[in-house]
Amino acid sequence: MEGRSLERERYKRHLILPDVGEEGQEKLKNGRVLVVGAGGLGSPVCLYLAAAGVGTIGIADFDRVDISNLQRQVLYCEKDVGKRKAEAAAERLRQMNSTLKVLTYGDGVTKENISQIIEGYDVIVDASDNFRTRYLLSDACVRMGKPDVYGAICEFSGQVTVFTKDGPCLRCLSPDEPETEVPEASGFGVLGAIPGVIGCIQAAEVLKLLLGTGDSLVGRMLFVDLKSMSFDEMEIGANPRCTCASFHRLI
């Protein structure tokens, strides 16, 4: 089958969606998304973006696959244990969709490289597992005007929002990063399905941002609790006292 008609067949269920269609699928193909953290959240995010045909996916993670990751990090198989996550994830995505450009950042994101890395992307996904990275990302995204699709989990719970330059950022909600991680990244239990739920919502928010359709989670934080099976949301606004207030055009 010729390339174009194969694409039409592959994305048929997108093409018949009024909010996607050929034009939208082209937007996804031209979309460039950076996923920071290729763990529990990063797994479904990467898989659904790749399946949807997002043309360029960057994966930033410095870690290696551990056998204890396999309980929830569905990007990886037993054969990946010991491999670098960014590389193993990229390999999986290329197997899934050979038409994509997948870039890896095996050093993760740091204060030194963050601006240079995110510059080339349209949307940034925070799928990291620590507040140091989360504040680093949020600050950089505000400074550079990139949407930051934030997802976080613990035990049976998770939360998702979208931070933008014009809306609230992480510092608007909570001005300072904690002195110690809360709790330490690997020190709490996680029901394997919660990063699946939250990561899929993050992927959906990314696709909507690229398509320019629907109501995004900008200005709203969605709370999910799988134990009580409840979804709740809270409106959040940019805080005039935030150190990023000048970027939020509040001052």
């Binding site: 953290g37 763990g39 529990g40 959240l41 990063g42 925070d126 799928a127 990291s128 597992d129 620590n130 507040f131 989360r134 997802g151 976080a152 989990i153 613990c154 719970s157 998770g158 939360q159 909600l173 909570s174 001005p175 300072d176 991680e181 809360v182 990244a185 709490f188 996680v190 990063p195 934080m221 709370f223 809270m234 805080n239 006292r241």
Partner: peptide, 25 residues
């Protein structure tokens, strides 16, 4: 914000919401 947790006095008809901010991934 946290610096105001001690200062804000709640009224009888206030609507208070307290959520954990999670960081795990």
């Amino acid at each position: 914000w946290p610096e105001d947790y001690d200062k804000v006095v709640l009224n009888e008809d206030d609507d208070l919401k307290i959520h954990h901010l999670l960081g795990g991934g």
